[in-house]
């Protein structure tokens, strides 16, 4: 991993120095031991700030979209001939490239506006799982040593097997290597351990009686405080104005009424059909630990099993909701 980090820095520096890109989006070290923070390098000499480790969690595709769109907005008043294109370099693992693919499929920007620095990925450490592993104590220091995570709290040190603290979406990830890239750094990563168990959790949930499923849904949504961190970190949530903030007409109340929260969450989820790459960003950023994945994964499973599609798996695999064919399955509409 250190080696990949080194190469990433070198490559980013080169891209910036020769003017191939205006900015490189990556991760840098944070102020807390288990945190990295997205960073935006414009000066080649700053490329040494870039890190690549097990704490790089947030999906950076969101920022690529934001930067390109922000630039587009700023160009609106320029004469057409004076308009420039922003070129963004991005450190991208499998899920990030799937999100970029979705952006490209949905014509958000052109392929030549993004330079994808592909990195192999072996999964990131989920903050919440790490916190549970140390009984909610504050993590004072932590580091990855081989296959385990060494965590320090004020009660002492503890070694936790890495597999126990890797994000659930990483453990079952089938796309831990980039789908598309302009350069690939390092060797391809080996498959993740639980790929075949991808839908196990969803299947177990599906098997529950409907009232139990509803009870779980209402319990989980009851935790939500509507900070919208999930939506804001999601690369597929790029609407200029989200339905939740529209007020002509107003779709959802602004308060914390139980039903309003539920409507926000399931409406957002429905917008994710065939567009959720299971990157785990929404779970990782949620301050209240809402289990969104249970429901998003169900949509992912339906997308795959009914429409033979996986979000962002390939440029030529058109998004489910963007195509229609006569033999599309529809039984689920009548017999949910």
């Amino acid at each position: 991993m250190e080696n990949i980090e080194k190469q990433v820095r070198e490559y980013a520096k080169k891209l910036l120095a020769d003017g191939t890109v205006d900015v490189v989006v990556g991760y840098e070290g944070g102020t807390l031991p288990f945190q990295t923070t997205p960073c935006f390098i414009t000066d080649p000499d700053d490329a040494k700030r870039l890190v690549w480790n097990r704490f790089c969690s947030v999906n950076l595709a969101k920022y690529v979209h934001d930067i390109i769109f922000g630039h587009k907005e700023s160009q609106k008043r320029a004469k057409p001939e004076d308009r420039t294109k922003k070129k963004v370099g991005v450190i991208a693992r499998g899920c990030t490239t799937r999100s970029l693919t979705i952006h490209l499929q949905e014509k958000q920007y052109d392929r030549d506006q993004v330079v994808i620095i592909g990195v192999p990925c072996a999964g990131f450490v989920a903050n919440k799982k790490m916190s549970v592993a140390v009984d909610g104590k504050e993590v004072i220091a932590c580091s990855v040593v081989g296959d385990s995570l060494s965590v320090q709290t004020k009660d002492g040190g503890k070694d936790v097997p890495l597999k126990e603290v890797l994000a659930d979406n990483c453990l079952t990830c089938r796309f831990n290597n980039p789908i598309i890239s302009d350069v690939m750094i390092g060797e391809a990563a080996p498959p993740m351990p639980d790929v075949e168990k991808e839908y196990e959790e969803v299947e177990a949930f599906e098997a529950l009686p409907v009232d139990e499923r509803w009870a779980y849904f209402t319990k989980e949504m009851g935790k939500c405080m509507r900070c919208y961190a999930c939506r804001n970190t999601c690369p597929s949530c790029y609407c200029k104005v989200c339905f939740i903030e529209q007020n002509q007409p107003k779709w959802v109340g602004v308060g914390i009424d139980e039903t309003d929260t539920q409507v926000f969450q399931f409406m957002r989820m429905f917008h994710m059909v065939g567009r959720c790459v299971d990157c785990g960003s929404c779970l990782e950023v949620c301050p209240m630990g809402v289990d969104l994945r249970k429901f998003l994964k169900k949509l992912d499973k339906d997308d795959f099993q009914l429409f033979d599609h996986r979000a962002g798996e390939a440029m030529e695999s058109a998004p489910t909701l963007s195509v229609h064919s006569e033999d599309d399955k529809e039984a689920f509409i009548f017999e949910p």
Partner: peptide, 12 residues
């Protein structure tokens, strides 16, 4: 630049 514009900081 890295801010997600979520309400976590203000709500907590």
């Amino acid at each position: 630049k890295s801010c997600l514009a979520c309400g976590t900081c203000t709500y907590l």
